[in-house]
Amino acid sequence: MKISLWINDKLIEDDIPADTILLEFLREKGCYSVKRGCETSNCGLCTVLMEGKPILSCSTLALRAEGKHITTMEGLQEEAKEFGEFLADQGGEQCGFCSPGFIMNVIAMTRELEDPTEQEIKEYLAGNLCRCTGYQSQLRAIRNYLEMKKGAK
């Protein structure tokens, strides 16, 4: 089926099987930051933004993105780097495999929530699994990042 959509603000037109999963489609288009960690929508590694809202690209048909704007980390390099510095300063990326999906959701959270509490942060990001870190370093990084943002305002 014919599909046209924007990936990181670039118009992409293609002809794809109807059952193509958005995750696979994005990787095929060179968005390698988008990772698969499971087949059951549990891990959050494949998180991308559709019209600015976080979605799991593993459980979204590519055709659902018809006419829409999809943003992957390839299209958010500046923001990824900005928060990523805080994560790196805590050693909170470790193996890094879950980092892109996690960071995409952190970016979505900071856009959506004003000054979130610790519990709100944990709940917003509960769907982003990480097996390396035990999450504490990521929480420290988010707190420091939010402090910096607050100070910058």
């Binding site: 930051s33 990772k35 790196a88 300063d89 990326e93 980092s99």
Partner: peptide
């Protein structure tokens, strides 16, 4: 000291560095 991991910035910006990438 808490030196940053050498590959940290590549990882947190989603660079294609893993086997399947």
């Amino acid at each position: 000291t808490p030196v940053r991991k050498k590959d940290a910035m590549a990882l947190v910006t989603g660079k294609p560095v893993y086997t399947d990438d």
